[in-house]
Design a protein around this nucleic acid. Structure first.
Lengths: 332, 332
DNA sequence: CTGAAAGCGCTAACAT
DNA sequence: ATGTTAGCGCTTTCAG
């Protein structure tokens, strides 16, 4: 049986409340006694029991992280994991722990409600992918500290943070324009579901309008194959564009293949740029100029915000918190 | 304030111990009373308080997952995340939760010891990357339920599970030999640190020895660039090999590039095969025949074993639990 | 089949 | 500056 606060109190020759206060660094205990108790604790191998402590304090220092984590997600969406590690790191520093919960969109409202009622944790971070109006209602009703990573796609009074995809687009466009490029094609994703490429386009347009230029966009390019095919067509034109800007690495890989088949040089004959650094911007030949978002940092911030909300429950956060970064490489 | 067991007892007109038993499905409560209490609980929105429950039961239904999760790990090692999701899924099914802990090799012994003493969780799953003899000592001394994912590289009495990289090698080699390929080059990783490629080679050798053949190996190929360079050299030979077998996707990508520069066809002029399905075996041109390991399943198994260990603390597990799978594609 | 009562190990108000 | 004591909400003997 592990040592309890009674054992330590006895060993140190004080009462249990003195021990409790000493270990919680209360101002009302003399430094001398504190030191003595701490030493004695070390000596007998005493560590406060986390369960008893949670119970007495009515909080347990646990934050939930809820997202849809189906099989294969580790490979399909490594960003998510990167966010999680960022969250964990910050929480750990503050003495909190992170519990992982797989939740699907359909089950989310019920599951989350139960998690809140059982007080398994002091707060919850949710991935935007599982947010629905129904869940928003649950979250709003119970005054439970929450924070959403990713802006929900409906008006709400929830707290969320997100990457500014608009800035990312703007940064990309400004960079290309500054370099003197003009004929630019943006390969976008699915025009209905891919909110992200739309938001990037918004940012791009801001930069282009400033120069009184417009950008050519081709949407519905959802993967490697689409990209290869469309690039092939683009390269058949009489006047080929100066740059292809890709919505992600896979699209860029498709471009590279088609361009290479044509025996054209990147960036001499045509330049290439992509959003996202992962998974192989730095690995393909030539290496790709990319816009990267620091997901670890996003996680850090999310953790910071949720702890703030726990302290000040009526605070509301709705902001874009992480700045995209340009990484210049060989392809431009 | 959330409803407590007293509220429910009053509402249902029974004592709190009856409520407790009913909700825990004790045999000594009549089905009728149980049903009535469950209904009433639903009605008033009662959920047992997780903290109080943990305290009273002296266990909290939490399992720790400890690994080195430095920034960037989400991208560098998506397998880890895939394992975690597998663990979480199984635990959830059994009513357990998963806490994530970033731990470095150096801090592991101390941190883990403290985690055990504070009883923050009922058991711990550790990634082999953080295991040292010192940690093994801590784990062995305190009788704390643990399970390691990955075989430690020293003799021990710990419990672990692992992928059989030997089988993976054997499966790969048998496949290639069955296809009629003979001149095979295996591009391996760092000869000292990369235990995995060595274990794959062991399996390969078993298959080759059966046919009284030997395989050519080139070690120290740690990434895309190495691979590209070495493939270039290989293709300069008078008689080029029939297949290049790569230790991972990045090496394969390097091969593809060099082969394409030479205007050779895959698989007509030279075939290609790789270990790991991720991140882009299915995306490159041509798609790559690969040996895949189901990491999600590994996580599932790990969770199963740790729960077994909690029930039967003196059980020891040392086994290879997940079978690699061959995925045949265009490159062979 | 149901209820009364004794903790689980700690925190925090209150007393000294 | 230190000690006394009443909970925190639930589980679990033990009686009935």
């Amino acid at each position: 049986m592990a040592a309890t606060i009674f054992d330590l109190a006895e060993a140190a020759g004080v009462s249990i409340s003195t021990v409790s206060k000493a270990l919680n660094d209360s101002y009302s205990i003399s430094e001398k006694t504190k030191e003595r108790i701490r030493k004695k604790a070390e000596e007998i191998g005493y560590k406060p029991n986390a369960r008893a402590r949670s119970f007495a304090r009515k909080k347990n220092g646990i934050i939930l992280f809820a997202a849809d984590m189906s099989k294969g997600i580790g490979f399909e969406n490594p960003h998510l994991f990167e966010i999680v590690t960022g969250v964990e790191r910050y929480l750990e520093e503050k003495g909190y722990s992170l519990i992982f919960k797989h939740v699907t969109v359909d089950n989310a409202p019920n599951q989350i409600k139960e998690l809140m009622l059982s007080e398994e944790a002091d707060g919850i971070i949710l991935h935007a992918g599982i947010i629905t109006k129904q869940l928003a209602f649950v979250l709003g009703k119970e005054a439970y500290p929450h924070l959403i990573i990713g802006k929900p796609n409906f008006v709400n009074t929830l707290s969320w943070i997100d990457v500014s995809h608009e800035s990312a687009g703007q940064i990309a466009a400004n960079y290309l324009l500054d370099k003197g490029y003009r004929g630019i094609v943006f390969l976008m994703g699915d025009p209905v579901n891919d909110q992200i490429s739309l938001r990037r386009l918004e940012g791009i347009n801001i930069a282009f309008e400033e120069e009184e230029l417009t950008i050519e966009t081709i949407s519905g390019i959802t993967g490697f194959d689409d990209s290869r095919r469309i690039t092939e067509q683009i390269l058949e034109r009489e006047k080929i564009p100066e740059v292809i800007l890709c919505n992600n690495n896979y699209l860029a890989l498709g471009c590279i293949q088609s361009i290479r088949v044509k025996n054209l040089d990147i960036p001499k004959d045509i330049a290439l740029m992509t959003f996202d650094n992962y998974p192989f911007s730095m690995l393909v030949q030539p290496t790709l100029t990319a816009i990267e978002v620091d997901m670890f940092d996003m996680g850090n911030q999310a953790a910071r915000f949720i702890l703030q909300k726990i302290k000040k429950p009526n605070m509301q956060t709705q902001s874009f918190c992480t700045t995209p970064v340009l990484i210049e490489r060989e392809s431009t």
